[in-house]
């Protein structure tokens, strides 16, 4: 699925390398990783602990820039090595959504407010933000819990609210780091299906780091990492890189 100039991929990463320390203490957490995710595509990133998945995810999320390599999101070059080419925080605000193993909802805000705050951060007027937050919670099936604090929600409900928050600003890319690790298999599959639905219906690229092999059929594509490198794709699968 090569990207068209008018419809650039959700993300394109070229030869990302992350090095911690130097000399005898140098550790290469990620080595020459390149990948591309189209809009509407759901990608699973697999690999054992310490493979470099989270390093890749934080690099793609503009949280922890790579030592070398380039990242282009939605057609906009954002990182060249450690050098930021845009205001990273502002770019995250407008173009990225995050979901983690823990929902990481703000405990003093209700479910509705947790989604609403993401919109207000992106300069949406409060009334409009509230309206959209309610709509998203409805879309994810937790509208009836919108007035509850996170502590009153189940793990699955919290994760749905976190997904709603990640979707709030129509991101080009959603990055999810083991979002089902704290859920039972049924709930875990529901969340994975949710990502697929979001990607297909809303046109966002989704990268999900997971250990859970039971719901891999939900994904459009899977990639595996080991020792900081992407492994060659399985036979029969057409990789973009």
């Amino acid at each position: 699925m090569p990207g068209h100039p008018d419809n650039p991929p959700a993300i394109e990463a070229v030869e990302l390398t992350k090095v911690y320390g130097q000399g005898n203490t140098e550790v290469r957490a990620m080595q020459d990783v390149s990948l591309r995710v189209e809009r509407g595509e759901v990608l699973a990133l697999l690999g054992p602990s310490g493979a470099g998945k989270s390093t890749l995810l934080t690099a793609l999320g503009l949280i922890n820039p790579p030592t070398r390599g380039r990242i282009v999101i939605g057609g906009v070059p954002v990182l060249d090595g450690e050098q930021a080419l845009v205001d990273l925080r502002g770019f995250r605000r407008r173009h990225l959504g995050f979901v983690f193993q823990k929902a990481n909802l703000i405990p003093f805000l209700t479910a509705l407010q947790n989604v609403q705050i993401a919109l207000e951060i992106n300069d949406h007027p409060p009334r409009q933000a509230r309206h959209r937050a309610l709509e998203l919670l409805g879309y994810l099936g937790v509208a009836e819990r919108s007035g509850n604090l996170p502590e009153a929600l189940s793990g699955g409900q919290q994760q749905r609210v976190a997904v709603a928050r990640a979707l709030a600003n129509h991101p080009d890319l959603i990055l999810a780091d083991e979002p089902t690790a704290a859920l039972d298999s049924h709930r875990g599959r529901q969340v994975m299906e949710l990502f697929a639905r979001v990607a297909h219906e809303r046109g966002a690229g989704v990268i999900v780091v997971t250990h859970d092999h039971r719901a891999l059929d939900v994904f459009d594509r899977t990639l595996e990492m080991e020792d900081g490198k992407l492994l060659p794709p399985a036979p029969g699968v057409s990789p973009h890189y």
């Binding site: 925080r89 502002g90 407008r94 703000i106 003093f108 992106n122 928050r165």
Partner: peptide, 13 residues
């Protein structure tokens, strides 16, 4: 601090 980190991640100014 965790919530502040989350707000920063979401791009809060």
């Amino acid at each position: 601090i965790h919530d502040i980190a989350m707000l920063k991640l979401m791009g809060a100014r």
